[in-house]
Design a protein around this nucleic acid. Structure first.
Lengths: 211, 211
DNA sequence: CGGCGTTTTGAGAGAGCTCAACATCGGTGG
DNA sequence: CCACCGATGTTGAGCTCTCTCAAAACGCCG
């Protein structure tokens, strides 16, 4: 899984890869309206979630009341993997758009791991990738400069051609994800475009050849 | 595992919990001098590492040449779990002090997971905790204020009494870990002490009752 | 058309960074 | 035993950069 809007391809964590049909059948679907909470920090854990449609974000609220986006999951990705091993959620899950999710009960999923080593291993791999991605995220957060942080994001999320990025949310959302004020992001993008480093067209950004 | 110097107890990830003796026996020990690299980003992955003595840090170097500390592992903790599922390391591992590590070959560890669901699950749980801790770390990085960031760290790493923190490295290391310049950290600690919020005594910090 | 949220641009202030000087503490070797 | 040296710890001062507060243009939807 991943944390950056455009990087689904980097570590898309489809349930298909490891969760047997037997479990997927018992899953319950649930729909959420934009802004609705799937679960809240401190609530008892139910199980694993898969986003079927829409987008769900994992967030925490720091003491100053600011929302910190930990992760943004799109269709095919799973949510709250860590909750399988803990009794309570440790962050909030909120629908960013109208969304549909599937719930795989904790009990059933854990049972699968007992019986099916392949599934367990695939799940481990998934978590391991998540760890890597979170570390990348921390690396990003260490960058003070807004322009460097944006560049870091853009290069990391460039498409197959290495130059094109498709934003899937609003720029304001992206700002939150990058840990910048939205004004700072607007200004930075404007400056990068003005300097010719990038080109913008709607929700598409293109990097110019070599910096 | 964890990322903060004093929080070993929060998610100490001892190998003893899940890795069978059969594997632990084939492990190879290796010693490192302070500053020596255990592995470098891009190198072929060997397996899982356990820190026996000393401290090893996981880092990346950003484009400005600054070192970003992703993780600091102490005795009993494991390193590079994600490398089990990838061909190359994605960050550098460097000994912060003279250190001894044990190497558990990838092949053997993965074999254990095939045969022993309990081990696989314990490993997953370990990774899941790591994910949680990394998220906490991201939350921390979102805090702009140096004093708030330090408070966040202190409360998160307070000992059993909830008021005492034992620093295990230098303040300079801590600054890097917190993503602050060492000057800023010194000043902040001095200010907190001056205001009576904390007391310092060598490498020990005590929080005053309630803020 | 009216309203709401996003996108933009402006101006000012605060906070941390950088550069710099100095103190302190261990360890090393003469 | 003491002088030297490097790294850590500490404090000072200015500067840059982002945040915050403000205001306005734009776009979308009922």
């Amino acid at each position: 899984m991943m944390e950056t809007i455009g990087s689904d391809r980097i570590a898309a964590m489809s349930v298909d890869n490891w969760l047997p049909l037997t479990v997927r059948i018992v899953a319950i679907e649930r729909t959420l309206k934009a802004g609705e909470a799937l679960f809240r920090r401190g609530a008892k854990t139910e199980g694993l979630f898969e986003v079927v449609a829409g987008r769900v974000r994992l967030t925490r609220v720091d003491r100053s009341g600011r929302e910190v986006v930990l992760h943004l999951a799109g269709p095919g990705e799973t949510l709250a993997e860590a909750s399988l091993f803990s009794a309570q959620y440790h962050c909030d899950a909120i629908a960013s758009t109208n969304a549909t999710v599937r719930v795989y009960p904790k009990r059933e999923v854990l049972a699968v791991f007992e019986e099916n080593p392949k599934a367990a291993q695939a799940f481990s791999a998934t978590l391991a990738h998540q760890v890597m991605n979170l570390r990348t995220r921390i690396e990003q957060r260490n960058i003070r400069s807004a322009s460097e942080r944006v560049r870091h994001f853009l290069t990391l999320n460039a498409g197959d051609d290495g130059r094109t990025i498709n934003l899937s949310g609003t720029l304001k959302d992206l700002a939150a994800e990058l840990g910048l004020s939205h004004e700072a992001l607007y200004r930075t993008l404007a400056a990068l475009e003005h300097s010719g480093e990038i080109k913008r067209k709607g929700s598409k950004i293109t990097l110019s050849k070599r910096v």
